[in-house]
Design a binder for these strands. Structure first.
Lengths: 203, 203
DNA sequence: GTCTATACTCTGATAGAC
DNA sequence: GTCTATCAGAGTATAGAC
């Protein structure tokens, strides 16, 4: 999905600076609210120089999104039918929460796109994502049929994992505003979510 | 919080048209991504006429946000210490989910503001919202001490209610993209969330 | 109260020197 | 590869006629 590979070390560094700055700006202001000036300043480049590396604002945005999608689906892909059901789900929750903690800007970029009606992600959502969810819903349903986890709507179970884990990145301003400067929200969240899903899934 | 009251029926209707159109646009594109052209078109007014009713883009946005906040906090305010604990929480969940279903644009406006770091809501979050959450956390903790609901981190319990209910409005594009055109997501969500919180809270 | 016309700024993108 | 200069269009906002 990436554009032509960089030929020099400088090019690689600049491309990375641009994408990093763009992630910051797009995740905070959305596509239309973001400006090339902001991205250029964040990357430490002039605006024309930025447009030497990417042909347009849209190209930068697309590069970010296509990088993002695979990484975002990865933890769910690893949900293993052969594993112990409750452990598998708890591991998925733990991984997803870790992604919110370690890549909050990526999470917010994704959230902003969905919030806007997902104009540039619709095909991916209705294709790859939908297929993957359907596949894993089959696995979850089989576990339920075997009495190894409680019977629940499998897709809403997946939705609830997304909602609960991504909340800590996407609504970070609210979480930290309400909690104040106490302990790390993610430590308490990890405990809370482990308890929640353990109780929810117990057959 | 509202501006000076409208003097004529036409003014009242136009102000309402503007706020409705602005809600649509701001909730989808965020403050910076929204344009007065879009709002004016949605309201069926010319751009200068729109600026006769509100002095600036910022003023429209502020009017929306100040209307929003009270309505948003209301369901939590009604969590009643004198009621039956599990019922009280389940009622709160049901109300919050109904708000997502009935006012998705308001939910997305709020979500977008938080996503952006809540520049215009910070004081409200660290003031009113924080105080209200603290107050209700005391109630929840008392119920836990009395053994009437399971012991959990009370603030994260509230976070989880927000995350799970608002998800269906804020990520509607994803939810409907994954589920397809089947049954109403909100019916299944209501069942799922009732089950989830019933199991979670059982002492 | 509502419109046309317009001022002025910002934004995405290009040309061309170095 | 990077810069200065600049363009065309969109954006917010105002002036002033009706």
């Amino acid at each position: 999905m990436d554009d032509s590979p960089p030929r020099t070390r400088i090019q690689a560094r600049n491309r990375e600076s641009i994408l990093d700055a763009a992630l910051e700006v797009f995740s905070q202001h959305g596509f239309r609210g973001a400006t090339l000036d902001q991205i250029a300043e964040g990357a430490g480049l002039s605006k024309p120089n930025l447009l030497y590396y990417f042909p347009s604002k849209d190209a930068i945005h697309e590069a970010l999104l296509s990088q993002l999608l695979d990484a975002w689906l990865d933890p769910l892909r690893e949900l293993d039918e052969a594993g112990e059901p409750v452990d598998e789900v708890l591991t998925y929750v733990r991984r997803k929460l870790a992604m919110s903690r370690d890549f909050p800007r990526e999470s917010r970029l994704f959230a902003g796109e969905i919030l806007r009606g997902a104009p540039r992600l619709r095909t991916a959502i209705e294709g790859e994502l939908r297929d993957l969810v359907a596949e894993k819903a089959v696995v979850l349903t089989r576990w339920m049929d075997e009495g190894r986890i409680a019977r629940l709507h499998p897709v809403h179970l997946i939705f609830s994992i997304w909602a609960l884990t991504q909340h800590y990145a996407d609504f970070e301003a609210q979480v930290s505003g309400v909690l104040g400067q106490g302990s790390d929200p993610y430590d308490d969240a990890a405990d809370y979510l482990r308890t929640l899903f353990t109780r929810l899934l117990a057959p």
